[in-house]
Design a binder for these strands. Sequence first.
RNA 1: GGGCCCGUGGCUUAGCCAGGAUAUAGCACCGGGCUUCUAACCCGGGGGUCGUGGGUUCAACUCCCACCGGGUCCGCCA
Length: 570
Amino acid sequence: MIVLYLNFVEQVTSVMSDTIRSAGFEVDDLGLEPSQHADLACRVAFKLASVAKKSPKDIAEQIASAVVLPDDSLIESIQAQGPYLNIKANRKYLDGTVATIRQKKEAFGGDFCEGTIVLEHTSANPNGPLHVGHIRNSILGDTLGRVLKRVGYDVDTQYYVNDMGRQIAIVSWAMKNFDFDSEKKGDHAIAGIYIKANAWLEEEPDRVAEIDRLMQLVESGDEETIQRFDEVVGIAVDGIRNTLLRMNVIHDDFVNESGFIRSGAVSRIVDEIKATGRTEMDDGALVVDLSDHGFEKTLVIQRSDGTSLYTTRDLAYHEWKAEQGERVIDVLGADHKLISGQLKATLRSIGKQEPEIVIFEFVSLPEGSMSTRRGKFITADELLEQVESQALVEVENRRPDMPDEFKEQVARMVGIGAVRYDIIKVSPEKSTVFDWKEALDFEKQGGPFIQYSHARACSILRKAEEEGLWDPKREIDPSVLLEDGEMVLIRKMALFDHVLERSASELKPHMLATYARELADAFNQFYRFSPVISAEEATVRNARLGLVDCARIVLANVLETLGIEAPESM
RNA sequence: GGGCCCGUGGCUUAGCCAGGAUAUAGCACCGGGCUUCUAACCCGGGGGUCGUGGGUUCAACUCCCACCGGGUCCGCCA
């Protein structure tokens, strides 16, 4: 028997709809949501008030008194409190939640959607290492991917590699003209020559023609130039991928832009756009008129020398992505807002599927915006190093007797957890300013707090097992869990599906961060007030151990969805 | 100049799109708690004209308009 929050909502919806109809009202939206006053609160009386010409309070009371609960219900009561209808879940719901978590374990939470999604995120230019702005994209994208996978979608995450744009031409050119520091990590060394090249090109603008020439050669398929581009791109992407994996950010595919030139997809799609009659020549460049889609300015899709632009290749890429999945989602920085709108409009105009776009605002430095070209950025690698070494100090303080290997491993997990949590907890439309002091200050109730809660749960279970008091396979009787802290924790765990559902449907993974904190909070309060191993009655101790096991499972599942490792000890 | 985003206690932040019950949490501040399952913890307290001014509504942090402040974008970069 699967008894969960979503079933509860279904039952409430059904009972409430029936009751309201039998009371002679009609309504489509019940306005149900979790509330601090009940498991679900219903605001429907407000909506009915104006139609029924009665006070919301009277309507709520009328509805409440007409409720007939089915025999096999998960609903304890539906009571009017002023204009609100407060719906409480019953014991069966609580006990069922505990049983379900113990039965489903790491599969608890999600698995109620189906379909395929292509999710593109990060896609930073391979002209240097990822910086602290890029990783907002990576962490947002990776967490979103994890959320979508958990709710049941088949997700393919992709990094779109710009392997033939102007920046790469500059890097390739720089490789010949400047010293490449092979001592450094590849992506950092690439940035080194890229920055120098840009500075030089600014002083000697005549040399820009050499860059243009390289782009023409690569677009026309010149083998030697392509090889030189591939070489620098490979070096940079290796470094970037290394950083991503270090942060637990996993891409299923790295897709090269150049592939769409070579396959002919780009020229094919340009022809398709031309065929709509909305293109024109402007100063030798081919532009698309999107005024009927609300864009005043035209969109350039071909340079006057005939080469393609990022946008052009992106059109072909999106056409291809739409063939790979039913939904296409892109995570992009706010600077792409206009261009992504134009991209969507162009795809629409040729009858292609448009992507769903998740936009995040910028991360800047106290002295201004970041720029790879000007060398003004803090790299993700540097951030991770600093955070991990700070985390090591914290572990040393707390667990001085543990072996170095343990300390380092915990520092790594905690450092990454702190970074990922700090970034994902803020809603993406907020622009932020990077601050070293804040980044290295392990905020209370951040990633490490949640990881700590998980470690505590593990350590309680470990100790109980050592003392022969616990076996993970043991049957428990959850109905003896009657303390406030116990029931609050169970209710919070039951909401995991609700949070996943909203997070996935709104493409807002930051909601999961709030939930993770609340869950850890509920667990901490429970074990602070309810002794587990030293509980007097065996049945209570047993049930509490089962509850700790549940908390351990749900915390681990939430952390996994956030891309944060769950240490068993820290 | 135009478009878009943001503006919530000293600082960071949830809630806003789908308006309703005392506005969420953390940091900092004040007070309390380790002979008891790891104190990266827990309990209590002070602190808010939800940028400003209008409007819609029985009800506005939430919707609409104007303004102020910050960010960002505005064709041959990505």
